[in-house]
C-alpha cells in the first residue's frame, strides 16, 4: 500500500510557531525602519533610523512638554467623546423610539452626517482661536454621528414580539426602556462608541495639527517646522500607540459589556 503521508503543512508550521509570527512581523518592521535610512535607500533627513527615533522618544519622555501635550490630546479626545456620547445617546434614543421623529429627521441627518467636520476648522478658529474649544468642536461634531446613528438603529431593532410582551405585562415606560430597549440597543451603541472613539482621536490630532491647539498634533507641527525630524517621528509613534490603546480599550469594553449582556439574556430565556 502506498503511504504517501503529506506532512508538508505541518513541518512548515512547526518551523515557526504561529504565536511568534506577530512579534516577528513587528521586529521585521522595526528592522526595516532601521535599515532603510542606514543603507541610504531613504535619506536619513527624511526618515531617521528607528534607533534614533526611539532615542528622541526617550528624550521627549524626559521633558514636561511632552506629557503636557499628551494630556491635552487626551483631554480633547475624552471631553469631546463624552459630550458626543451624551448628545448622541440622548438624541438617538429619542429619535429611534418615536417613529414620527425618525421619519422627520431622516433626511436632515442624511444631509448633516457626511459634512466633513474639518469644514468647521475656520469657524472653530474664529470662535475659539487655539483654545481647547476648537478641538472640541471638531471632535464633538465628528463623534456624535456614529453614536447617534447606532442608537437609532439599535432602538429600531427591538424585537416586536418582545415589545408586545412587555406591553401585555403592563411594563412601565421606564421598565420597557430598561429591560427591552436598552439590552437590544446596547451592542449597537458599543459599536457606535468604538467608531466614535477612533474618529474622535483623528479629529483631536487633526485640530491640533491644523489649528495649533495644544496637544500632540501641534507638537508634531512644531517639530516639523523646526526640522526636528526624529522628534516628529517619535511623536507620531506616540499617536499611533494612543490609537492602538483606544482600539484595545473600546474592544475590551465591548467584550466585557456584551459578555454580561449575553449572560443576562441567556438567564432569562423568553
Amino acid at each position: 500500500m502506498t503511504t504517501t503521508a503529506r506532512p508538508r503543512r505541518r513541518s512548515r508550521a512547526g518551523f515557526v510557531p504561529d504565536r511568534l509570527l506577530g512579534p516577528i512581523g513587528i521586529a521585521a518592521f522595526a528592522l526595516l525602519l532601521e535599515v532603510l535610512p542606514r543603507s541610504g535607500a531613504v535619506s536619513p533627513d527624511d526618515l531617521p533610523p528607528f534607533s534614533a527615533i526611539v532615542r528622541a522618544l526617550a528624550d521627549e519622555a524626559g521633558g514636561g512638554a511632552f506629557w503636557g501635550a499628551l494630556l491635552d490630546t487626551l483631554r480633547g479626545w475624552g471631553y469631546g467623546l463624552a459630550i458626543a456620547l451624551a448628545a448622541g445617546l440622548g438624541l438617538g434614543l429619542l429619535i429611534g423610539s418615536v417613529p414620527f421623529l425618525r421619519e422627520a429627521t431622516a433626511s436632515t441627518i442624511e444631509f448633516l452626517r457626511p459634512i466633513p467636520s474639518v469644514a468647521l476648522v475656520p469657524l472653530a478658529v474664529l470662535l475659539y482661536g487655539t483654545r481647547l474649544g476648537s478641538t472640541l468642536m471638531l471632535v464633538v461634531y465628528a463623534a456624535t454621528w456614529p453614536i447617534l446613528l447606532q442608537a437609532v438603529h439599535g432602538v429600531q431593532d427591538v424585537d416586536p414580539v418582545a415589545r408586545e410582551t412587555a406591553a401585555s405585562f403592563r411594563f412601565s415606560r421606564w421598565a420597557r426602556l430598561r429591560h427591552v430597549v436598552w439590552p437590544t440597543a446596547l451592542p449597537y451603541l458599543l459599536t457606535g462608541v468604538r467608531l466614535a472613539a477612533s474618529v474622535a482621536l483623528i479629529l483631536a490630532v487633526a485640530g491640533e495639527l491644523i489649528i495649533g491647539a495644544p496637544g500632540l498634533g501641534s507638537e508634531i507641527a512644531l517639530a516639523q517646522a523646526s526640522n526636528a525630524v526624529a522628534d516628529m517621528y517619535a511623536l507620531i509613534l506616540v499617536t499611533g500607540a494612543l490609537g492602538v490603546g483606544v482600539n484595545l480599550l473600546t474592544r475590551a469594553l465591548e467584550r466585557r459589556v456584551l459578555a454580561w449582556h449575553t449572560s443576562i439574556r441567556t438567564e432569562v430565556p423568553a
Binding site: I202, V205, A206, M232, I236
Partner: peptide, 13 residues
C-alpha cells in the same frame, strides 16, 4: 498599529 496612527499626522511626514 499603522491603522491606529491618526491619518492627519501623515501630512508632515
Amino acid at each position: 498599529f499603522l491603522r491606529a496612527v491618526p491619518p492627519p499626522v501623515l501630512i508632515p511626514v
